[in-house]
């Protein structure tokens, strides 16, 4: 299949299950909210080295619990325990520290992780709990408990517990281009388009990863190493997966709350990436051994 004269390889991206949480960070203005969200999602590119994958989720929310501007953040980790650890660390160090912010759960779920209920101790006994009774909600939702922790600009309001649920991580596609400039431009266009899709993040820098990895290494201690078939400078040394004329490959990794969101985002991204100078779009898989979620590129483009 060709899109805009770019070859779409008949292959699939292989993704796997993770646990996800979604936070809504609000602040007195969108600049502080974005600052907190950016800092919180730093060093959150891959579970391999960061213990979680995290990023700012697409469009800004139209409304927030406290009526102030807000930004949504998604976090993914391999287990609920790890996710809770990361939430406590990142909210405590990056959101609570940022002026005027508050932090709310934005993924109601039966399984909930302790966040505010651990951070509250920072209040040194002056923290105040506020419970929003379920009977006050029309739909009788779970009671909501917030902590008001005194800080130097007033109060940091944080949700006592944060919902978590099963999610999908590792959706991906490769953009192979003639030059670094062509490939970079195509990748940026793809990320811009994908950021309009709710429920997904692209956890790598600017949404793009240039050091894609394969499983295993010649060094026994490493679980992953450079994706050598896609490294242009290794042509002639290893069997290359790059088409003739391609001298650069960039990958876009997508994590999402469900398969549908990832599939939609990939299709939108692939279409946007098919620009001048791009030779081929492909995807990474491990022969079906790594994850149960398979995103076939051609099928995605037909459906979306």
């Amino acid at each position: 299949m060709k899109l805009n004269n770019v070859e779409i390889e008949d292959t699939y991206a292989e993704a796997f299950g993770m646990r996800a949480a979604r936070l809504l960070i609000t602040a007195a203005d969108v600049e502080w909210a974005r600052t907190a969200a950016s800092v919180m999602t730093g060093f959150g590119t891959s579970v391999i080295g960061c213990n979680c994958e995290t990023g700012i989720e697409g469009p800004l929310p139209e409304s927030t619990p406290d009526g102030r501007p807000g930004v949504r953040v998604l976090l993914f980790a391999t287990s609920s325990k790890q996710l809770e650890q990361q939430l406590v660390l990142r909210v405590g160090q990056c959101v609570m520290t940022c002026p005027t912010t508050a932090c709310f759960d934005d993924l109601p779920s039966e399984e909930r992780l302790k966040v505010g209920s651990k951070l509250r101790f920072f209040g040194d006994g002056h923290q105040i709990s506020k419970r929003i009774e379920s009977s006050l909600s029309e739909n009788g939702a779970t009671p909501r408990r917030l902590w008001r922790i005194p800080v130097m600009d007033g109060e940091f309001v944080v949700e006592d517990k944060v919902g978590t649920r099963k999610a999908v991580a590792g959706g991906n596609f490769f953009i192979m281009g003639r030059t670094e400039e062509d490939t970079s431009r195509a990748a940026r266009a793809a990320v811009r388009a994908m950021r309009e899709i709710p429920g997904i993040i692209m956890p790598f820098p600017g949404g793009v990863v240039r050091s894609g990895s394969k499983i295993g290494s010649k060094y026994r201690k490493l679980i992953a190493s450079t994706n050598s078939p896609y490294c242009p400078t290794l042509r002639g040394q290893v069997e290359s997966a790059l088409p003739p004329g391609a001298s650069c490959c960039l990958e876009i990794v997508v994590d999402g709350l469900d398969e549908e969101s990832i599939g939609r985002a990939m299709a939108v991204g692939i279409r946007a990436a098919c620009t001048r100078g791009v030779v081929r779009i492909s995807a990474g898989n491990y022969g079906g051994k790594l994850g149960k979620f398979h995103f076939h590129l051609l099928q995605l483009l037909e459906k979306n």
């Binding site: 009526g67 506020k130 909600s137 029309e138 109060e155």
Partner: peptide, 26 residues
Amino acid sequence: YRFPFLRLFTDRLHSRGFRVPADVEQ
């Protein structure tokens, strides 16, 4: 001070038909 947490109460009170002045939490 301003107490943005009050919005969580006032929003729900509004939805229950209880009258609270608009934007009082601001």
